[in-house]
Amino acid sequence: MYLPVSAIVLTSGLALVLIGLWVMLIRKNLIRMILGFSLIDTGTHMVIVSLGYVTGGTAPILDQAVGTVDAVSKVVDPVPSALVLTAIVIGLGVTAVMLSYAVRLYDQKKSLSIDDCAESKW
């Protein structure tokens, strides 16, 4: 069976999202939950990039190989790449804030388990 390369990236991106959700819902350790978030983040990036792929296209950077005249028929969609660039930076910022919350919680409770934060559950 022939599988286009973008379909493989799409499938593995969605699989990463599912694995990340599993990690976030099952694990008790705060660091592992943040890792689960990062997996979802990465999976989403892969999905967005794969949706911008055009069969046989190359990177949207023009040089000797891809001239300005025939660029439209040779390159992939630049908009999803630009969106993912934004998404990576936002994901990094969110992860940094979550990790510093984890550091603060560890300072107070001397534990990284979510069960030790039960008083803030409801």
């Binding site: 969605l14 055009v54 660029a71 390159v75 908009v79």
Partner: peptide, 21 residues
């Protein structure tokens, strides 16, 4: 079902054509 109904694009959309062109 999303994956099964996915078809790879064979050419750029109108916005991307405008940007690249």
């Amino acid at each position: 079902q999303v994956v099964q109904s996915y078809h790879e694009h064979t050419r750029l959309g109108s916005l991307a054509t405008r940007y690249v062109g």
